[in-house]
């Protein structure tokens, strides 16, 4: 059992989200930085998609009411277990009564707390992710508040070194100078003016404060324009879709985006780069760069293969840990 000591309207329980509910109008949801959540779960020998806490409001504190192993991954935050400072992407076993504090990131925007076994909240429509818009999933469909107590899925304990262990290469975070993401052309790409297509690639698009789990609004020097007015029927949209409303400033759809929309779409951020956006701080420039579909598929397959390799390496390492 863990107890939340700091409330906010933004820290939520997330797993990999709902893969089969979009046809009902339910957002895909899930961790904005899947790789960070995966790293935590792999360090704890959990299923890779076990539910953890996505933290975007700091400082975040929890108390452990029982001894348990946990991991903190994702953004580069000062993390302390009572007085012990923990390195990035680190797993360790807490004693009953200890307090974990995660402070505002030095780099990145989202941290993930995972526990051995995963958080035990009911699966709704196939996932434990919190759907804030629909008020279901996670803990009672809402963000975590001070005093909330969360149980873990029963799992045999794992043995970790007293000082814990972690990854020598934590998950990469976008540099403060800017986040580069790769994009494929989307349905209305060719109806934008040649200047707009060039601007999309060359401009520094600043991430505005209107950036949340539903979408990221960007602001650039020049607006993007269509060659002719368009009126589109409502159509399905995926996380990563770059919509351009009439004002000409792009909005990137994120994990809790509406499942359908009607604005023209200029591009789609490829799946592996969505996590880089999720770790981008407000005020930072975002740069788009074209990629071919073949290269995008290659990047997605490489990511999947890297994660399998990492899982195998961690699994092997755990058998060799010296206590």
């Amino acid at each position: 059992m863990i107890e939340i000591l700091t409330g906010s309207s933004l820290n939520t329980i997330q797993d990999f989200g709902r893969r089969h509910a979009m046809a009902m109008g339910v957002a895909q949801g899930g961790a904005m930085d899947r790789l960070a959540l995966s790293h935590g779960n792999l360090l704890l020998d959990n299923p890779v998609d076990a539910a953890g806490i996505e933290i975007v409001f700091f400082p975040f504190r929890v108390r452990f009411h029982a001894g348990m192993s946990f991991a903190v991954t994702g953004a580069d935050c000062p993390v302390t277990l009572d007085d012990l400072q923990l390195p990035r992407d680190w797993a360790i076993t807490a004693r009953p009564g200890q307090t974990l504090t995660i402070r505002a990131p030095r780099q990145g925007a989202r941290a993930y707390l995972t526990v051995r076994g995963g958080l035990d909240v009911p699966a709704v429509l196939g996932a434990r992710s919190t759907d804030l818009k629909g008020s279901f999933g996670g803990l009672e469909g809402r963000a975590l508040q001070k005093g909330d107590r969360l149980a873990c899925v029963t799992a045999t304990s794992i043995r970790l070194p007293a000082a814990g262990y972690g990854l020598s290469r934590p998950c990469p975070l976008p540099p403060a100078e800017g986040t580069q993401v790769r994009v494929l052309p989307a349905a209305e790409h060719d109806i934008f003016t040649p200047e707009s297509l060039k601007t999309l690639q060359t401009a520094a698009w600043i991430l505005t404060p209107s950036a949340n789990r539903m979408g990221y609004r960007l602001q650039g020097q020049d607006a993007l324009a269509l060659t002719r007015p368009l009126s589109l029927f409502s159509h399905g949209i995926l996380p990563g879709t770059v919509q351009v409303p009439p004002a000409g400033q792009p909005i990137i759809q994120m994990m809790d985006a509406n499942t359908c929309g009607g604005y023209p779409k200029i591009a789609t951020v490829i799946e592996p780069d969505l996590r880089l956006l999720s770790q981008t701080v407000v005020g930072t420039p975002v740069h788009f760069r074209d990629i071919t579909r073949d290269d995008a598929v290659q990047a997605i397959r490489q990511d999947a293969s890297d994660l399998r390799t990492l899982a195998a390496e961690i699994s092997k390492l755990r058998t060799q840990l010296v206590f």
């Binding site: 089969h20 979009m22 409502s234 399905g236 579909r293 598929v297």
Partner: peptide, 23 residues
Amino acid sequence: IVQTIPGVNNLLVMFDAVETDPA
């Protein structure tokens, strides 16, 4: 096929690009 989302006179189809070739 992971899922399909019927829109108004359109259809969004989602699949796993790790397993399935988009072409």
